[in-house]
Amino acid sequence: MLMRLIYLLIALTLPTWVCSGDTSSPISASSRYKDEPILPIPLTITLDTRKIKLGERLFNDPQLSHNNLLACASCHQLLLGGDDGLARSITNQGKSDLINAPTIFNSVYNFRQTWRGAFRTLEHQAEADLKNPRHGASTWYEVLPKLNADVYYKRTFQSIYPEGITRETVLDSIATFEKSLITPNSKFDQYLRGNESAITKDEKEGYLYFKQYGCIACHQGVNIGGNVFQKFGLFADYFSDRGNITKADYGLFNVTGKEKDRFVFRVPSLRNVAITAPYLHDGSLKSLKKTIELMAIYQLGTTLPDEHIDKLEMFLKTLTGEYKGQSLVMKDAL
């Protein structure tokens, strides 16, 4: 019965999705986004502000690492677009890490965390990094006494959580802080909410290409990605072209051990993409244009004309949002 219904629906809607690039349908502007494949980020998120404040302190506290050198904020810096601007982050031994650090912004909207999508929740991710020998290299036996020795933590935890400082409460406050890190009100979101002049004609054209070429197939929804797995190198073999394959390149395979998951990654969010260079899981590209070009070849099986790449880039730049009412900006060159 279900299958029949499916085919019936496909037959009925076939014309719609063949010409899905057409945006001239006469719908009212304010409700436009309800039919768009991209949804705006909610302007506010309701969370316990006391937990946010506490979580922020923990997020910036190097005591969560064994040698008191790294904090969450070391690789996820709110001033640098929520990542560290490096191709690969720095480990607690001062060496280069295995993979590029993804942005912490809007991670609440990802269906899994990290490039390989290993963790379902922010709490899992935070705990895994605390224990990761290259990052925190710590344990709860080590961290909890350190926090307990701190008068601020002792008092604050007790005022929020009756059970005081425990694994669960530490993770809960960090995750609550991370959930507060959303970047609403980008130019494009304003456009989706009905402000026709929020983006320029060229940027609108870029969005049209974004849908027509099929980028939208994976980069959709509220986070413009982050909610689907996809193989990297659909139409050509990226990894043999690049060479020097490492274990980190195997992606989801490292989690499931299944052959079909080799080179499969969680599609990253394109929110704030203009300020989170370098790109790709290996951090190999610094230019957004180059990345667009490469994605078209490997993921869409097509080559884009330069003019279209330019417009696509213009569109992507409208995705930069605001944190605490301030528009995110490119980091200062030191």
Binding site: L5, L9, I10, W17, V222, N227
Partner: peptide
């Protein structure tokens, strides 16, 4: 169904 039919094109 809505996604298969292309009426909805995001997975939220």
């Amino acid at each position: 169904l809505l996604i298969r039919s292309g009426i909805i094109r995001h997975y939220n």
